[in-house]
Design a binder for these strands. Sequence first.
DNA 1: CTTGGTTGGGAAAAGGTTTTCCCTTAGCGT
DNA 2: ACGCTAAGGGAAAACCTTTTCCCAACCAAG
Lengths: 351, 351
Amino acid sequence: MASDAQPVSAKTPVTLREVAALAGVSVATASKALNGQGRMTAETRERIRETAQRLGFRPNSLAQSLLRRRSFTVGLLTNDTYGRFSLPVMSGISDALVDKGVSVFLCNVEDDQRLGQLHVDAMLDKRVDGIIATGKRIDRHLPVDLSNLGVPVIYAFTQPDPGAIAFVSDDAGGARLAVEHFCRLGRRRIAHVSGPASFAVVHARAQAYRDVLTEKGLPVMEPLLGSWSEAWGHEAVKQLFDGKLSKSRGEKPDAVFCGNDQIARGVIDALRERGLDVPDDVGVIGFDNWQIVAEATRPPLTSVDMNLAALGREAGLTLLSLVGGEPAEPGIRKLPCRLVVRQSCGRPPDG
Amino acid sequence: MASDAQPVSAKTPVTLREVAALAGVSVATASKALNGQGRMTAETRERIRETAQRLGFRPNSLAQSLLRRRSFTVGLLTNDTYGRFSLPVMSGISDALVDKGVSVFLCNVEDDQRLGQLHVDAMLDKRVDGIIATGKRIDRHLPVDLSNLGVPVIYAFTQPDPGAIAFVSDDAGGARLAVEHFCRLGRRRIAHVSGPASFAVVHARAQAYRDVLTEKGLPVMEPLLGSWSEAWGHEAVKQLFDGKLSKSRGEKPDAVFCGNDQIARGVIDALRERGLDVPDDVGVIGFDNWQIVAEATRPPLTSVDMNLAALGREAGLTLLSLVGGEPAEPGIRKLPCRLVVRQSCGRPPDG
DNA sequence: CTTGGTTGGGAAAAGGTTTTCCCTTAGCGT
DNA sequence: ACGCTAAGGGAAAACCTTTTCCCAACCAAG
């Protein structure tokens, strides 16, 4: 009498019709019994439930979707093959949705128009309830037009169409976090080394950097823009500590706020090579909190985390509410970053 | 007469019934016209086609799936949140399948039983045609039981159930590639620094390392096992070049084959710090070909690439043939690695 | 003029579930 | 005994497409 026995894994799925037949009722009654609808004796309901359980009945989602015009499926478009940024976003989305019974189609479109159209068509054919677009850059479009597809669209960490809903990280806020942290620790000459000027985030972060220093009455050094690489971190240290930049002012930086963790890694290595101690002589903060890099630097790197998984969760939940018919304001929502403190900044002067 | 006009993007998808009505035929005829089935005048067929085109008709996949008992959908299970290994596999799978009209459900199960079951149930309910399991380690199971689910299952880069079909990288072959490359370049004292002994691949690669050296009649140094980190790379260099290990033999290594790129990075940095030139004094080869690391080392790192995207493609195509009813031998298929040559090994002695 | 074949197209079932509406029966009051 | 209500359950339509089978009309041959 193993009522909790594993239902035998059917080679061919068992249908409601079979359950109904075995329980001696019609499919209509069976359906109502299992969904808690309709009126029937508690006894009948229980018998049907038990039969379904015993047979391992699971309703065919396709049939349900067809009827309800709702597939409990969303499409996730990304062009980030490498996935450093979109993967956390994606797993945040997936986690938020799986609990609601919603599955996610993974659509990697690279930067290929044809591939993008292919995926969008496939998703639409499969009647996804909505689409989330994500990418590797906040300021670049995916190679597809998602406007007026007939399903709700949410943008996460990628450039939205005008009038759409988008979630992005608050880069300016993140930069403030970093610079203010330096200020609290008593650093006075804070430099900023970042990526290429072609990235919107570079300007957002640089402006926040300037703003904070101005507010605090500290000297603003012109941000050094280069590439997102370690090599540029090395080079930037050379410019900061050799060049006329510092000569003319007579003082060297005691802190460097870097545009990403790779630059920070290069900066830290370059500083050590010239005999400067991190954090005693110079504090360093990175951006992205790319764990594997941040923890491999010596000392481990304090870095700004964009909370991408949380961003993905928000995006997923918002899409769901849109699918549910609830209205939502179009616009760009900036989600706060957080500072992950490790050992590259030192402690406050006194403690 | 814009015959190539964009079909107006319908808020509510247009059905075959509407196409048929507008073309003045029955749905049966309309269906046959669009699918190239049945008999009718070329004129009728064309009229229907044109009507469908004009209305932007796209068949409802859910209805098709219900009828055909085939959803053109597969589930992709992974426990690799960070995605360094599974992301290439995943995008290989996705690329291989999108051209066949098959979409992929992304299911991130972490190492959580409950989450795994949730995803598997959802996939089964949605009548996936098959499942691909992938992970971050070849020698670890996902936290779910995929045996006898009623749909074909393929394992890619994760530990398979017995009797299943699996694709994994040929780690031994990859290691041979690296060591033989060193031999060809005239290196004589080749060391091996790898990860923890708890990883199966560590042993596979170490054994291949020993085999090649034995074949060539070169001295075999006992592999140094540690962690997968840069720090361990540093430490290993200390052991190799300071310890009694080398003292007792009187000679230092002129090549180091590393178990992954992070170790290699640590080794290269440590060598440079002790004034040894890479590649002139010591050649270094890594494993994984993690581009962002391999290209950030100075000099850029030669590394073994596991061809994970290709592995994903193979897995996807094999799953499809299984779904199509073609038989396939159970067992583990090892796919070859390839050596990506950069500058950390130098050139052959003479050219 | 009948027979047989061909051609163009339609009716209906199938796939699995949900939901609306209806029917039967029992219980109750008078 | 009659009428009414409520309870328990079923029939059928709906979702959308594909496919099998069938019908009507037309033509040619006998």
